[in-house]
């Protein structure tokens, strides 16, 4: 699914999305306002997605607590299993 693929966009995030720098020239083709608009909207959505995901993680953490053991503990255990 299209929106699912957006989870790959955990990059950079919302803050940098709409920073105003000078727009690059598009050589000799007309990029079309519709196309530019949808791209900026998608960047925005991706940014919101990232922000929401981070926030949701925190909410989950608050409600359910951290059920997983910290990674350092897990790696210690694995290490012990390996040597026994």
């Amino acid at each position: 699914m299209f929106w699912r693929s957006q989870n790959k966009l955990i990059l950079i995030g919302f803050a940098t999305t709409l920073c105003l720098i000078s727009s690059p020239a598009f050589a000799y083709i007309d990029p079309g306002m519709g196309s530019m608009w949808i791209q900026s909207m998608l960047a925005l959505t991706a940014g919101f997605g990232v922000a929401f995901k981070m926030y949701w993680q925190r909410v989950k953490l608050f409600i359910f607590g951290n059920k997983k053991k910290p990674s350092s503990e897990r790696s210690d255990k694995n290490h012990q299993e390996n040597i026994t």
């Binding site: 950079i12 940098t16 999305t17 709409l18 920073c19 727009s23 306002m33 519709g34 608009w37 998608l42």
Partner: peptide, 28 residues
């Protein structure tokens, strides 16, 4: 297609300028 029509309206100059200046991360 919808937004192309919408921005054909010259009264939306401010919005058009904003879009022209928009940037997207490389990953997007």
């Amino acid at each position: 297609a919808w937004s192309q029509k919408k921005f054909a309206d010259k009264r939306k100059n401010k919005a058009i300028q904003k879009i022209k200046n928009a940037t997207i991360p490389k990953a997007v």
